[in-house]
Write a protein that binds this DNA or RNA. Sequence first.
DNA 1: CTGAAAGCGCTAACAG
DNA 2: CTGTTAGCGCTTTCAG
Lengths: 351, 351
Amino acid sequence: MITIKDIAKKAGVSRGTVDRVLHDRGKVAPEKEKKIRRIARELGYQPNIAGKGLAARKKHIKIGFVYVSSDQAPFHGVIYESALQYARQELQQYGVEVRFFPFDLKDYEENFREWDKRFIKVVREQKINGLAVVGMMGARLQQVLEKNGIVDLPFVLYNQDEDVKGKLAYVGCDYERAGRLACGLAALMTKNKAHVGIVSLDDGEMQSSVNRVAGFEAEIRERYPQIQIVEKYFTSNVRVMDELFSEVQQMMERHPDMDVLYLANPGDYSLCQSIRRSGRTSDIRIITNDLVTEWQREMVRNGTIDATICQEPEKQGIKPLEILFNYLALGIVPETEWYKTELSMRIGQNV
Amino acid sequence: MITIKDIAKKAGVSRGTVDRVLHDRGKVAPEKEKKIRRIARELGYQPNIAGKGLAARKKHIKIGFVYVSSDQAPFHGVIYESALQYARQELQQYGVEVRFFPFDLKDYEENFREWDKRFIKVVREQKINGLAVVGMMGARLQQVLEKNGIVDLPFVLYNQDEDVKGKLAYVGCDYERAGRLACGLAALMTKNKAHVGIVSLDDGEMQSSVNRVAGFEAEIRERYPQIQIVEKYFTSNVRVMDELFSEVQQMMERHPDMDVLYLANPGDYSLCQSIRRSGRTSDIRIITNDLVTEWQREMVRNGTIDATICQEPEKQGIKPLEILFNYLALGIVPETEWYKTELSMRIGQNV
DNA sequence: CTGAAAGCGCTAACAG
DNA sequence: CTGTTAGCGCTTTCAG
């Protein structure tokens, strides 16, 4: 294994100088620099991670993690728990500290000034070196930081992509592909001729949901001409849980041939239970997204939900921290701008 | 973070002594030992992995990796490639060397004496510290080693479990569960009333295949009383690829209601293509296992295969090495005896 | 049985 | 601009 020491000896300089060249810090005489780079290349120098890891504690790295704390979003709960555990189990060993910034969607709209203020304060005082931010907040926070003179903070987004200055990477699934996968499942369930009702608990503007539906439709066009979407229903009014059910019932009455229901953004899964209890719909196949609570798992096990498409929430919590750690502590730039989480299909036998 | 130094100071001993106690090496005065253990516990000492990692090079660890090299087994090719890359990219950094021992199933039966001899020679001369061995060879190799006076080598098995002395862990899927999953898929495809033909390219004794079929049948008993297995056909005669197809055709003629074909151990996937080409079977659903060659992927994409169940071959190559490294270099004992690889379902949309 | 010292590879801090 | 030094946490070795 080639070490920085080998390079230094061969180049007739000190390890410090080699380090400077390899990390573009400080000034080094041009000829020396060239020589060092050449030798490093020739020898095929690969920095040793264990060494870097040990030395990383000198950097006193601090990472901020912004996440959705609402109890209404168990999916984000899993993300947070995973991040927390990773921070404590792994990053702590390298002297890296992680500051968590919970925010509640509804609450934030009312008290964003206060939230922002506290956020800025902590980022500034604690000298945060990088941020992992849930998509949808990235651009907003970047703006807030800039307004307060904090620039050049590396960002990693997760769960939802955004175009943000300083973005190192995005960690999350391909929602369009998730929709395609749902369509493939619908095809599998119906010998390629499903009559699909799509229901989503959002206003029809939510990116994830929009992309899922788009993927579903694209797959119909490209592969399953016999599949029909009989109706789409979007609603963001969360107080109408029972009403939603009666809407779906009416939908099914309007389309007696409907045999697949795709919940693009199911929110509360109680709808599935209501449908099953209503009896006469027992042979409709229900496809949902995500699987985080034990209750949801149980619904898949007992057939209330026929299939569901998951997107690795754990990875969405861990990977952003890992990317930031690699970047800040080890100097490793992410290989890709988009770390795709795996889309896995779950049925009763593999929840 | 608590270090070994903190413990030493608090206990009034040297770091060396603490190290001895914590790793049960050498003798330490009983009172000192107790004190050190107590302090370590009280302080919640957690060894630092980066530190251990760096110091690990002093151990000159060598790991042996025994794998199936046959070109007939692309699945094992993926395992090998993954292990190789992991060895080069990760383990090499810690000064760990990996010696690979390919063996060809047929060839081995003829020349096992020679193979064994070479194996023993390398293990002894290179002072191999641990072995990752493909299941089915574990017990045999353990025996050979013992006969040659080499004992106490830690083993990690993969792909197939065995009861082997010194086994640290097994890495592989739950084949019974894979069979259950296949049954769940069959149910999904047929509104829970499939007529299934099972075909497997083995003599009916192969563990993985036996367990898959058992799982399939168990799931029928427990969940899908309406599903029937119309026929099972096993053959290990590989020269009869075309014959196999005509066997399956006859099977389908005997059971015109057969609508799902489960290939428990497909070997060569050409059968699927033959079936599709024969035309009149276009609405039969085919479920297979594993997905490694581009050709197989293409068959899933274009609908020749409807669904397939994968078992993470990459992990089967990497994890055994990781377990051995953790054990030998970092002193970390595996948390579980069975590292289950994930069973994922693949259809045209997520190959 | 125990302590002291050296060193794994890398980086930051300091002194020139 | 450059070299030297110290140290991250751990393990091995050597000397007692």
